[in-house]
Structure formats: structure tokens, C-alpha cells
Design a protein around this nucleic acid. Structure first.
Lengths: 239, 239
DNA sequence: GAAATTAGAGAGCAGTGCTCTTGCAATTTC
DNA sequence: GAAATTGCAAGAGCACTGCTCTCTAATTTC
């Protein structure tokens, strides 16, 4: 009985889902800044003020979309990395990185929402931090795993001293246990390098210079991976 | 006579300048997406439709601001690099990079306009390409100069083969003569690395991980510089 | 079944980019 | 120097935006 017609709470969740998916569809066409509540409502055959029952403000809707996007991207990268044997961290990094890039290219507006200019006046709520960290965690856990199964010590000691104290160790201590502190800093560098390349490609800055973006990206990841992987952590660098 | 009161053409240029500076001021407060023609007009004590005599559309005003910002940033980085002795390309790179970062931090909204998410539906006109390239040119010319005054050959031959054909050589041939092709590709990597770091810092992605952003940035630049500078191109890496 | 809660409709407010017409002033033309 | 032309700002108006408020109808709670 209560199965045929959804209860009110169910209907509410369903409606929230419908609003988000309609927004995603519109955002894919016109981009996040151009996302209009009224258009979403119009598209759903509902009056605009009705949406405010579910999202008290436009920013709240955007926040929900951001959280979903972070999780989606995190899942996608994680799955890609998990399809590669654990004893080959270099290929794992490659897989994760190119998955991120692939996701970015198929969801450019959502990528821009996550990693482009922050909306001015919009302060990311605290609960967006965790899903955002998930994405970075995919990369850092590959590196951590590689160091865990390695006997290598103190490679790159030359920069060890200058790097000490650069990080907020409390945070990264728990996330990357067993990884030398300099390598943790270099992991942040890997992280920014990957997203920097993707952003530049997506935002059109490579136009006229990079011909084969796929290969360029693969090389960049491979080069940067040298900085963070243990000396004999896996098979020698390929291709 | 014609000196006391500006001629029509002069007045026009003056008004254009006033519109742009007012826009810059408002943009510094509320960011580029929130820049409103009506508010600019209000601020100038003029009716909004009057602005359309000078900029046919909001996008045209934004374009003008973008071009100015690219040039401003380019000048700033160039001057910083030129204050460092030419025989020390590593320090030149450091100077240019940290100038770019400094500019970004004092003009965050303009930086976001240049290197953040592109405004959807806004296609950058061709004449923005040249001022945009100027900024990258500051970095690439430091690298080029370093290779010109070096006898080093074929360092990093290991990635030479995979890198061949990745770039649009026609463009970079003229810009970086005498620089080995793989190094040209790595220069693009340096370029994205620098801007990737700045963007991440400015857009808040380092919150909770990087403690000393200044030192982190310096290290990143120094690390990446290793990839593009000739073996004995200058003094050994410092600090 | 009465009371309380909730969803949607509709009107309305202040803001936006942009267009068009109107009047006035400065410049060019003759 | 008078006349025609051009450039500028003003103001009204259109279609749009996010958001608030009130009202009605439906559902859930007790």
C-alpha cells in the first residue's frame, strides 16, 4: 500500500534528486555560473519558488552539486587505480591521473566548479572539505602504499632540510604514514602538477603549443612521479 | 586653447580609462562574475546606457580588463626577472615565478579572470592571445637564454624520444631557438606547475596541508627548474 | 476526525544586461 | 558664421535573475 505511492519523505528525496540532475544537465550546457533556478524549475514544470523548499538558496544547490561531483570524481579515480596491480605504483599513478583527466574532459563545467575560480562571496562549507580531500587521497594513498612496501630510505635527502616544516604535519601524518616528510611535500607538488595541467588544457591555455595532449600529460605525470616514488618501488619507468 | 579642454577623442579615451579603473576597483571587491555595468555606471555618476557607447557589451569590457591584466602581469614578471643577473637563470626563474605569485595574491580576482574557469559562452578574442603569451614568454625566454649560453647537449636524452612530436613545433621553434625539443616540452610543464601551484594556493586547495606557502612554492619552482635548465648553466642550486 | 505540517502556486521586489528613442552639445562641413 | 552632422548621456522599457511572502490544498500526526 505504502509502496505504490511514495511517502512524503521519499518523495522529498526523489525531488531533490530530480532537481540536482536537472541542474547537472543544464550546467553541462551552459556552465555553473549560468545555472538559473528559474530555468531548472521551468524545465521541471514547476514554479521557481517551489525549489526553495529543497534548497534555501542557489548557493546551497551549488554546494550539493559540488559535493556530488567531488565524490563522483573520487570514485572514478579510485576505481581506475584499483584496476592496476598494487605492486606497480607508477602505473597506478598514471591510471588515477588519466582517470581524473578523463573525468574532467567529460564534465568540464563540473571540473571548473571544483577546481576553477571559486565563486566570489561563496565560502565553501566545511562538509565539502572531506569529499574534496577524497580525490587527493587517491593519489597520496598510492604513494603511501608504495613506500610501505619499500625498504628505501631517505632518498632525495638533498632537499630534506629545506622541506622540513613546510607542511601541516598533523594533517598529513595520519594520511601518509611511513612516507618521508620531503616526499609528502613533493606529493603535494605532484597533486598540483596534475591538476595544473588538466586545468590549463581544459581552460585553453595550451592552445597553439601542445599538439598531443595525451602524450604530454602522460609524460608530465611520469616525470613528477619520479619525485615521489621510492627508488626501487616497482618496475622501471615504462614508455 | 585646445589644451585646456580635452578634444572629443581625448575625452573618449579618458572616459574609457575611467570605466576600466572603476571596474577594476569594483572587481577587486566583488570579483569578475559579479561585475555589474549598472554598478559601474552608478559609481561613475552616469546612467548605465551611457557605458554602451564605449563597450558594446559586458564581455567587451571584460576582454579589455583581461588584456590589461595580462600586460600588467607580464610587465611585472619581466621586471622582476630583469633585476637578476643574466648568468643566473635559476634565480631568474625564481624571481619571475615569485613575482607572478605576488601579483596573483595582490590581484586575486584578476588572476582568477585570467587563469581560473573561463566564463562559459565567452570565447576569448584572438587579440587576447598575444598578451597572454607574453606572460609565458617571460619564463621561456629565461630558459632559452640559459641554453644559448651553455655548451650542454642532449641532457635528459632518456625522455627525448617520447617527447618528440608532442609540441606544435612551429610555434615554439621561433620562441625557443636552440633549446632541445624535450626541454621545450618540460618548459610547458614548468609553466603549468607554477600556475597550478598559485591557483591551488589562491583557490584554497592547500588549506590544511601547506603550512609555509612561501617556502613550498620556492621549492616547487626550484625542483621543476632542474628539468629545464642546462646541466651547467649557472651557479649550483641554492637554498 | 481535528490539528499541525508541508508542497506548490502566484504575485511581487530589487537587481541584471541590453535596446531604443529623445534632446542636447560639440564638431565638421560648406 | 550658419547649417548639417555626429557623439554623448538620459530615461523608459523588455526580459531575465534570486529571493520573499502569502495563500491554498494536500498529507501526516495525534
Amino acid at each position: 500500500m505504502s509502496e505504490v505511492r511514495p511517502t512524503r519523505a521519499e518523495a522529498r528525496l526523489l525531488q531533490i534528486e530530480r532537481i540536482k540532475s536537472t541542474s547537472r544537465r543544464l550546467m553541462a550546457e551552459k556552465g555553473a555560473p549560468g545555472l538559473s533556478l528559474r530555468e531548472v524549475a521551468r524545465e521541471m514544470g514547476v514554479v521557481s519558488s517551489a525549489l526553495y523548499r529543497y534548497f534555501p538558496t542557489r548557493d546551497d544547490l551549488l554546494t550539493a552539486l559540488i559535493v556530488d561531483a567531488y565524490n563522483d570524481l573520487g570514485d572514478f579515480a579510485e576505481r581506475a587505480a584499483s584496476r592496476v596491480p598494487r605492486d606497480d605504483p607508477r602505473r597506478q599513478l598514471q591510471a588515477a591521473a588519466s582517470a581524473i583527466r578523463k573525468w574532467a574532459k567529460s564534465n568540464p563545467h563540473e571540473y571548473a566548479l571544483l577546481y576553477g575560480s571559486p565563486v566570489p562571496g561563496y565560502e565553501a562549507p566545511l562538509f565539502t572539505v572531506e569529499p574534496a580531500a577524497r580525490v587527493a587521497l587517491v593519489l597520496s594513498s598510492i604513494i603511501t602504499e608504495a613506500w610501505r612496501h619499500s625498504n628505501a630510505e631517505g632518498r632525495r635527502d638533498d632537499i630534506g632540510e629545506t622541506l622540513r616544516g613546510v607542511l601541516v604535519t598533523r594533517t598529513l601524518d595520519g594520511v601518509m604514514p611511513g612516507v618521508p616528510e620531503p616526499v609528502r611535500a613533493l606529493s603535494l607538488m605532484l597533486w598540483s602538477q596534475i591538476f595544473g595541467c588538466i586545468s590549463f588544457e581544459l581552460f585553453g591555455h595550451y592552445k597553439g603549443t601542445v599538439r598531443n595532449a595525451n602524450r604530454f600529460f602522460a609524460i608530465v605525470v611520469d616525470e613528477t612521479a619520479n619525485l615521489v616514488l621510492p627508488p626501487d618501488g616497482g618496475p622501471t619507468r615504462g614508455t
